[in-house]
Nucleic acid binder design. Structure first.
Lengths: 66, 66
DNA sequence: ACTAAAAGTCAAGTTTATTTTACTTTAAGT
DNA sequence: ACTTAAAGTAAAATAAACTTGACTTTTAGT
């Protein structure tokens, strides 16, 4: 699974730290997510979708290997 | 976070075991999810959304305490 | 009432998400 | 070149997802 967090964060022009605070996770969690280091929980995905005002499917995209 | 898996599974008229096989998780994982015992990963949510042909947001709903 | 399928549950184990602390690197401004 | 904010990274610890196997309960059919 890949994601567009970095892009949408750039559009809103906020830092990883700011996003982390909005969503209530650590900055490293945002960073690791953006770098594709792990798969977030559905709660996190929904919170990000709500924050960016985009459907979950637009932020997170399934890949073959999933 | 709550979910409507049981309803959508009923609409498609399939068992927990069948859904589990479709999605490639254990039957207990489906059962525990339906009973709200834990929050699934985003990959799982996306797979379920794809299977049920519904947006993630329609299957999984954020609550206050999230 | 009997049976069988489906659903529910539980404990133990493995894997993975997430946090915390802390350090290094990159980018941008002055 | 210097400074500072932001991003990247990493190790250790904790919490949570998910599996496996086994058992109990519910549901529906006959």
């Amino acid at each position: 699974m890949k994601n567009n967090l970095k892009v949408h964060r750039a559009i809103k022009d906020i830092t990883q730290a700011e996003l982390a605070e909005e969503i209530n996770v650590s900055r490293q969690t945002i960073n690791a997510m953006e770098k594709g280091k792990y798969v977030p929980s559905t709660v996190l995905a929904l919170k990000l979708a709500r924050f960016f005002e985009k459907p979950v499917e637009e932020l997170f995209i399934l890949e073959e290997e999933d």
